[in-house]
Write a protein that binds this DNA or RNA. Structure first.
Lengths: 207, 207, 207, 207
DNA sequence: CATGAATGAGGATTCATTCAT
DNA sequence: CATGAATGAATCCTCATTCAT
């Protein structure tokens, strides 16, 4: 337990909010949304229960904020790669790296997120407006759409052959996700990223 | 609501156990494990609360039993394809079809299953021994290992080029899962299965 | 504390619902709505916390149900007096007795009720629809309107002189309420009822 | 909301204490004691949370102080009328006016006060001594006793016929209260005051 | 004095599970 | 076996109050 606490820098007496978010990251990742309790989070964040509710409307909102905070830089990166002046296939390679890196780092939280996002905004979730719900979904939809757009680029330039750019994007993404979620990456990160992109682009059949 | 009840055949006054399982299938698929309540299940199964606990140790056990029951025939099919006397690439094609078919049919339940399976058997779950937990995981590990074995066959016969057969299997599986979970299949099931297998085998780059 | 428990007949093992209502009556009357806790109610009712929520949607609903249950017979009596074939002044006399008797018996609960009813149905009260709210208000509005109608009868028959029948009804009612709430009745109930009706009808000035 | 804020003169940067009292008046009147939150009060008073506790021991004390402040001038007026050298019936008439005027102005706050005063000073209320509690009750007891004294005067002078001067005083007061609380006054304030006093003195029966 | 971030005791509510019938 | 009333542990959330700045 003390080992876990060390993962959160409590040396800074200010910024309780960040401590809570960091603690929530750990607990939500481990337990999932429902099994995670506010009590466990505050114990880890070394703070009072009320403090959580000073910063976040409720448990949902805490989770949602966490997702937003963690995915913001990633979404930025993906968006930038698309704007780069490089060939589509190279973009796909880079994006694969980026997706792999992000999902590897946040594998556990993201697994929880992708499971819970479907139920958010259902009846009985105050402080979670229709709009926030949509914004929440954008966290995984947007990067995917960007990837799809790049695949479309490749198709238009005659570089890729595929029936549905959407299916292709989902396929690539989920290959990454599956690898990550099963924790197969280990130390050969570069190799794995390369493999995924290569299989996706050229297949595994020996021609 | 009555429409839903029609999905369960209540004409047979005996076999309460099956009614409960069928109702549980619907509720767990819709709500996920935690948001599903025993109350909702028994209302749908048109039975009493105590009856559930006559047949199943607890909520986890009900869920677990449900998973076992639904995946048994699928595991059989996959196992049979492997034993077939046909080329590995053809086996991969057939397996892709089978995976796609099964996961499409049980997409919602399986999503829930794959999320919850990680926490099952944690401390505080009576009636869920270490062994049962392992058996539970076999429901998605076994078919995957069979697929991996076939990919290995292909590699050994020089038909496939891929660094890690395990990664390849996960990649193919997850491509299927992602497509299914995002409900992109629509009516062109055959086409989709073909596309996935083709991209996996030959890539999307235009060579 | 044990003395209080004796006020509730626990000899009947059935009818938990009534035990809860009886306990709620005592606690709400003593503490008011907000200071009353479900914990205290169940301790008095000698039941489990969940049992309360089997019978009542929430604390508000428990309170509301209590009010309904207690005022039903009273509303009936008042309604019957109006229909009686006796002179209006006699009806007023009888109604005064009835009001006095009812409000004396339920003085504490009614004080709480009349204070809380204004806030019921505000935002954040699930299980308390607009309609239920209105129905709730009827518990004190209806008997009052009946009294007003009788006063009107008296006016029409030239027996009473008063500017506003509504004001008159409120005046008589509240004279009763005030007396009761201040617990001035003591043992001379009959005398008190007579006094109130007489002052109301003939004034206190010595002509 | 801004409209409400305008009701409090914030132009004076000093005198935070009064701002808080004014804000408390509004919030307590609207929400009652329990539903009123310190947060809402300070938002309206445009001050910090700690400031409230610089001036008042706790929420109860803030409420109590508010009551004291508002009733002081009223109690003074009533006391003066009694000392006036005019006939008892005229005093009753004037007092009726005064009561009506005061309770009309502070109807909402007083309703809350009269409901809460019963629980004040119960166990667990620090900073609220037995003595303060008594002093608090004097705010409605004293004017009433003065009215009662005047009625006694009238009885002694053979002007009034009534069994209990206390009951009579309560009756008159509560008639006023009821009318006010139900907001029936409207614009005809003078007329209403006159009506109440007349009915009380001479009754409504047509002799 | 003024402030507001931090706190935690207290309370309402949910829901899996039991057990007497 | 079937049932469902009864249960209470577990959990989220509120809000008065404190105290360091």
């Amino acid at each position: 337990m003390d080992k876990i606490k060390d993962q959160i820098d409590l040396s800074d007496p200010k910024n309780k909010r960040q401590h809570i978010l960091d603690a929530a990251y750990i607990v939500f990742s481990r337990k999932g949304f429902h099994r995670a309790t506010v009590d466990e989070i505050i114990k880890l964040a070394d703070t009072g229960k009320g403090t959580v509710y000073n910063y976040f409307i409720n448990k949902e909102n805490l989770f949602y904020t966490l997702i937003e905070e963690r995915s913001a830089p990633f979404r930025h990166h993906i968006s930038n790669i698309k704007k780069d002046n490089i060939p589509p296939l190279e973009k796909i390679r880079l994006m694969t790296r980026e997706f792999l890196s992000f999902y590897d780092k946040h594998a556990d939280l993201w697994r929880v997120f992708m499971h819970e996002v479907r139920c958010f905004g259902e009846v009985g979730y105050p402080g979670f407006s229709e709009e926030q719900q949509k914004k929440c979904r954008r966290n995984f939809e947007e990067p995917l759409e960007t990837l799809e757009a790049v695949i479309k680029e490749g198709i238009e330039q005659g570089l890729l052959i595929v029936a549905s750019s959407k299916q292709a994007a989902y396929g690539l993404l989920s290959a990454i996700l599956a690898i990550v979620f099963q924790k197969l990456i280990g130390d050969e990160f570069d190799q794995t990223a390369e493999n995924i992109a290569r299989v996706f682009l050229f297949g595994i059949a020996n021609k």
